Computed example of a mutant assay.
Amino acid sequence: MKNKIGLVAVFVLLFGMSQAASAQDGSRKDQAVKAMTDTMQVHLSLNDDQYRKVYDINQQFLTKLGGIKQDGGGKLAKLQQLKAADKERDAALKPILTDEQFKQFQVDKKARREEMKENYKNRKG
């Protein structure tokens, strides 16, 4: 049961991020990418070179999420696509971040997922 809740939380988190990615106004997407990257810069102490590379990765990630949202298919198929996009992003970030930064990124991501789970529970209950 916990695994199902976790999957739902991941889906909700990534689907919410895809909302920002699928905004028709390109500036809204750019703002979402900048906000995501700025947050990572603060939490991970990115240098200028890392920031530019992470920005590009985040831009590709949000574009991909927007495409998944627009695609047809069931929730399970979309969830699998979202998880795959998340893994691709992690793989792209790993060589750019130091080991310590990547560990912190994973901790931050897990905390966001837990927060999403809690928000989901509060809305349901």
Score class of each variant (00 low, 15 high):
Ile57Asn: 03
Ala91Gly: 08
Leu76Ser: 01
Ser22Leu: 04
Leu46Phe: 10
Ile57Leu: 03
Ala20Glu: 06
Leu7Ala: 03
Ser22Thr: 11
Ala35Thr: 05
Lys4Ser: 03
Asn119Phe: 14
Ala21Asp: 06
Arg89Asn: 00
Arg28Trp: 09
Ser45Pro: 04
Asp25Arg: 04
Lys75Thr: 00
Lys103Glu: 15
Gly26Trp: 13
Asn58Thr: 05
Leu14Gly: 02
Asp108Thr: 02
Met1Gly: 10
Arg28Cys: 01
Lys87Glu: 04
Thr63Ala: 07
Leu82Pro: 05
Lys69Glu: 01
Val33Ala: 04
Leu65Asp: 01
Val33Glu: 02
Gln24Cys: 00
Lys64Gly: 00
Leu7Lys: 10
Thr98His: 05
Met116Pro: 10
Arg52Glu: 07
Gly125Ala: 12
Gln19Cys: 08
Tyr120Thr: 12
Glu115Met: 10
Pro95Thr: 14
Ala21Glu: 04
Lys110Cys: 00
Glu114Ala: 09
Asn119Trp: 09
Gly73Glu: 02
Asp25Asn: 10
Ala9Ile: 07
Lys83Leu: 13
Arg28Glu: 09
Gln106Ala: 06
Ser18Arg: 08
Glu100His: 10
Val10Arg: 03
Gly125Arg: 09
Lys103His: 12
Lys124Met: 14
Gln104Ala: 10
Gly67Met: 10
Gln70Val: 07
Arg89Asp: 00
Ala32Arg: 01
Gly66Glu: 00
Glu100Gly: 07
Ser27Trp: 08
Asn119Ser: 08
Glu118Asp: 15
Leu7Cys: 06
Lys78Met: 04
Lys121Glu: 14
Glu88Val: 07
Met17Pro: 02
Tyr120Asp: 03
Arg52Asn: 05
Ala35Val: 03
Lys78Leu: 00
Ala92Gln: 12
Met36Cys: 02
Gln81Thr: 08
Lys110Asn: 05
Asn3Pro: 03
Ile96Phe: 10
Lys110Gly: 08
Ala20Val: 09
Lys29Trp: 11
Phe15Asp: 04
Lys121Gln: 14
Gly66Ala: 00
Ala92Asn: 12
Gln81Phe: 01
Lys109Arg: 14
Arg112Ala: 15
Asn3Leu: 13
Lys121Ala: 11
Leu13Phe: 14
Asn58Gln: 12
Leu14Pro: 03
Arg123Pro: 02
Glu118Gly: 02
Gly72Thr: 11
Lys110Phe: 09
Gln104Pro: 07
Arg52Cys: 00
Arg112Asp: 12
Lys121Trp: 13
Arg28Ile: 11
Val8Phe: 14
Gly125Phe: 14
Arg112Trp: 09
Gly125Asn: 13
Lys124Cys: 04
Thr98Val: 10
Arg89Tyr: 00
Asp56Ser: 05
Lys94Ile: 05
Ala9Thr: 07
Gly72Ala: 13
Ile96Leu: 05
Glu118Lys: 15
Asp25Ser: 04
Asp99Phe: 11
Leu76Tyr: 09
Leu82Asp: 09
Lys103Val: 10
Thr63Ile: 06
Thr39Asn: 09
Ile68Glu: 03
Leu44Phe: 06
Lys4Met: 06
Lys109Gly: 01
Val33Asp: 03
Arg123Tyr: 15
Lys87Gln: 13
Lys75Pro: 00
Gln24Val: 09
Leu13Ser: 10
Gln80Glu: 15
Gly74Glu: 00
Lys53Arg: 15
Gly16Gln: 02
Gln50Asp: 11
Asp48Gly: 01
Lys103Leu: 12
Asp38Gln: 12
